[in-house]
């Protein structure tokens, strides 16, 4: 309960901000004192908070070591593939210039290729450990709005790059490490182009690079917290055993 009153950590990604706008402590008590709706509000707050609680039994544990990283990548690729599939049915895409349609169509197919690849690869390598098909929740994204769609795409692509970079160290198998490398550079190409569509020249700015011009990779835990915003209850992931 008290966790609901905590401000967001400064190191959290901005990916989940739209759904997790913090309620100032004082405001919270003002609402809480407003009798009728108070209990419902508090319960809603608890439910919301537990979405990202790594101890929640409903979370899907991607596992550890090589299979854990593959499941983690599979989860991210499923999310991206589902996102672009929905983009392609949205009003923004329908009315978009031909060049943007071509770009988004290409990316949507790349992501589907990645997701289906991991499904087959993990099924072959560890049939009992593969995670299920995830159910997504993009209700916070307005698919009729170009800016909203491209900003979401930017977050998914940047997060994907940071995730692969951060997880490479947990792979023991050379083949898998090379495969992750083959995919992450394509994700980086996507990320750069989506950023250039939003604002030309922002392909590698200081929101994703550090002072040494290295990409700022993210830990599996950071990424899981960020992407769980876009996964339904029962499909949210935990990556706490990738350490």
């Amino acid at each position: 309960m008290s966790d609901n009153l905590q401000p967001r950590g400064s190191d959290e990604t901005t990916l989940d901000q739209p759904l997790y706008t913090p309620i100032k402590r004082r405001s919270f008590f003002m609402y809480a004192g407003a009798t009728a709706g108070a209990t419902a509000l508090v319960l809603a707050g608890c439910s919301k908070d537990s979405d990202n609680n790594p101890n929640d039994a409903a979370l899907i544990d991607v596992g550890s070591s090589d299979v854990g990283v593959l499941n983690y990548a599979y989860a991210l690729e499923q999310l991206e593939a589902a996102f672009y599939a929905q983009v392609l049915t949205g009003a923004y895409f329908t009315g978009a210039p031909a060049a943007e349609k071509a770009i988004l169509t290409d990316i949507s197919i790349h992501e589907k290729i990645h997701a289906d690849f991991f499904k087959t690869a993990i099924t072959a390598a560890a049939p009992t450990q593969i995670i299920k098909a995830l159910e997504v929740d993009f209700s916070s994204i307005d698919f009729s709005n170009r800016t909203r769609v491209l900003e979401a795409a930017k977050l998914f692509e940047d997060t994907g790059v940071a995730a692969y970079n951060g997880a490479g160290r947990y792979l023991t198998n050379d083949t898998y490490l090379t495969l992750a490398g083959k995919i992450v550079s394509v994700e980086a190409r996507h990320a750069a182009l989506i950023r250039d569509l939003i604002s030309n020249g922002t392909f590698a700015d200081n929101t994703v690079l550090d002072a040494n011009a290295l990409e700022m990779s993210k830990t599996p835990q950071q990424v899981a917290t960020a992407v769980n915003t876009y996964l339904r209850n029962g499909s949210k992931i935990s990556a706490t055993r990738l350490v």
Partner: peptide, 20 residues
């Protein structure tokens, strides 16, 4: 390894932009 991967993806961003 992580540092090298973090350079690798930046090179890919460059390649993407040059192509654009």
């Amino acid at each position: 390894l992580t540092a090298a991967l973090n350079i690798h993806s930046v090179e890919a961003r460059h390649a993407s932009h040059i192509r654009t």
